[in-house]
Amino acid sequence: MKPQTSTAPSTGRHAAEHELLVRELERRIEILENLEDSSFGNFTMLDWVFCIIAFLILPHIFLWMFV
């Protein structure tokens, strides 16, 4: 069944392009949904601790040191 497109264009060329994009979009979603999280690299608890200390806590400590 042809999908009911909310942004479907009216002219012939654009309609063909749009249908191609929809098919490609579905293919990509399928791939991305099925990829394991680990294939996108790690961001561990240690990264979080480092980021919170370096980019959130330390700037505030320095702020109050120079009041």
Binding site: D37, F40, F43, C51, F55, L56, L58, P59, H60, L63
Partner: peptide, 25 residues
């Protein structure tokens, strides 16, 4: 202090959800 510290805080808070979310998907 204000420019470096403030910028780091702002970029950190705005970056974390966007970076990790946009990167994953």
């Amino acid at each position: 202090v204000c420019l470096i510290g403030g910028n780091l805080v702002g970029v950190f808070l705005t970056t974390m959800p966007l970076s990790l979310g946009c990167q994953r998907y």
